[in-house]
């Protein structure tokens, strides 16, 4: 079972977490076309490589943002979720 080495918590097994999907940036709903909006709602980035992902630790109720290489399935970086971190991940 994979381990997530989280700030504040230390190494925790994967089954203590809920995967929250990739970090995504919502397009402006007022200006995007139906097609752009549908793309945001329904399509996900499946390209192998480094992804920014939401991971939720169930026992503590803490959201983390993890950087994971989906080719090697290795976590490169895990941090507390915060608006600043999200901004960085969204642009990354």
């Amino acid at each position: 079972m994979k381990l997530l080495n989280c700030p504040h918590l230390g190494a925790r097994p994967e089954n203590e977490f809920t995967y929250g999907g990739e970090v995504r940036v919502q397009p402006d709903p007022d200006t995007s076309s139906d097609a752009q909006w549908a793309d945001y709602v329904f399509n996900r980035q499946g390209r192998p490589g480094t992804h920014h992902e939401w991971w939720y630790h169930n026992p503590t109720g803490i959201w983390f943002i993890a950087e994971r290489d989906t080719i090697t399935d290795r976590f490169l970086r895990i941090e507390l979720a915060s608006p600043e971190r999200l901004k960085e991940a969204g642009h990354g």
Partner: peptide
């Protein structure tokens, strides 16, 4: 309940809101 609470927490962070949530 668990999913709604998770989603609330996530959105509080994402939107940078000043809200305390307790399940």
């Amino acid at each position: 309940a668990p999913a709604v609470y998770r989603e609330m927490q996530r959105r509080v962070i994402e939107w940078g809101l000043n809200v305390d949530l307790v399940n």
